[in-house]
Write a protein that binds this DNA or RNA. Sequence first.
RNA 1: GGCCCCUUCGUCUAUCGGUUAGGACAGCAGAUUUUCAUUCUGCAGAGAGGGGUUCGAUUCCCCUAGGGGCUACCA
Length: 501
Amino acid sequence: MPNRLRFAPSPTGALHIGGIRTALYNFLLARQKGGQFILRIEDTDQNRFVPGAEAYIIRSLEWLGLQMDEGPVSGGLYGPYKQSERLLMYKDYATKLIDEGKAYYAWDTAEDLEAKRQSVQDHSFKYDASVRTHMKNSLSLSGEEVKTNLEADLPYTIRLKVEPGQSIIIQDKVRGEVVFDSTELDDKVLFKSDGFPTYHLANVVDDHLMDISDVIRGEEWLPSTAHHVLLYRAFGWEDTMPTFSHLPLILKPNGNGKLSKRDGQKFGFPVFPLAWPSDNPAESIEGFDSYGFEPEAVVNFLALLGWNPGTEQEIFSLEELIANFDPEKIHKAGARFDFDKALWFNQQYVHKLEFSDAEERLRTQGQALGFDLNAGDLVGAFRLLQPRVSLLKEIMPLAYYFFTDSIEFDNEEINKKWKPEVAPVLEKVADALQNVEPFNFDVAGAAAKEMINSSGVKMGLVMPMLRAALTGTMQGPDVFAIAEVLGREKTIQRFRDFAKR
RNA sequence: GGCCCCUUCGUCUAUCGGUUAGGACAGCAGAUUUUCAUUCUGCAGAGAGGGGUUCGAUUCCCCUAGGGGCUACCA
């Protein structure tokens, strides 16, 4: 039996990183076991449907490199992969349960139920064995009434008939044994009056029909897993029921509650993989992509947020994650989202980038900044600045002095350190560099330093001014590393110009 | 309120009865870098509380406390 894992989001908007991590873990186990990774769209809530969300989910998985074996785009033998396109079968399965006395029709309206809830003091109203005989359903009504209601096409829901007094034991891969008492469970709605199934029905039916072997999902599903087990039993599918792994939640940075979609704006960092543009700027949201993250870094960060192989390795490629992943090593407690750590992971990946991986993006960014990229050495600039940033997009703004000769000087800082006796030294350094061969970090650097030493002016006064001459700022890479990238001509010119300022 | 889950440095975590409780991020200090960043080294920093079980508990059990989730014709 191959391992078949599904990621089953509902298209209600952008997918946040909690969902991404769930997808990732499903993907990792599928790949590790040589099974399939399946995307299934759970669009059974018409009210919360958001146009574009499905495409967003697919683009997100692609961006992260989580290739799907089956899904709405790639298709597959178990399709369709959108629940809205599977509506007929849910009804059949629900009806089958009714025929077998394991579910029933209910005609209580939303208003009826709301009134019931209001009438009971605390939150204790539960549609279960103790009250269902007092409600309007095919168990409490006479056969005649039921027939009449059905023939009149009265809107109904179908509810699972939960038998009280049995204990339901779940073997969860991350939590071990979890026990529920069916007396505590309500008669869950399986089929809604709008003709759509609820998550509970659709999820169980589809997981069964799609031969899903392992369910990895968020902890918020743990309480309803008991109902799902009951459903597998009712259908007679318990022997092929998937394994369950309930993931700890990703919590807000301050620890109060689970991370939610609004937290990105609130805390000032992305909580979505991809940006979600909107005509209304207030509704546009940033993504890890637009923030400048490398997808590999996001994957690495998320993989380790709640899972750890037990070694001290921190950096994992997707292949290494696949090889090492183990659901039983998933941490049980919720994990706070730590953006600093995410940035650190990204820094590790940016520092490892080859120029060829970065070139296209650097060019695009340089052009957006209005740089004349032909005027300077892009590779040289990249090599110099790469170790100094956490995000690739931070490089080009720092690199402007490689691509223009009109340097903007940070006069406030420069003037603090400027001494008039430095000016002639700059000229002399320029002279000294005129004929050094080759013009590089070592040779030009040595020649310049020798000149400065013989000038009698302190090195500590001159060096910062050399950098200022070249870059306009008091900080940055080594002066002669910059000089080498800039080339002899520009270096000398900038030293001379600066001496005259 | 009820049900369920969880609880090791500020944060993410390792430890599957015996460890000076390890690592990473962040913090602090130092070295390198005549700058800044990187890098390197070091410092500081944790088993929620109380009962058991055991020769021995961070580890197993119970209670309490705290946190979280669920409690919809949402997923």
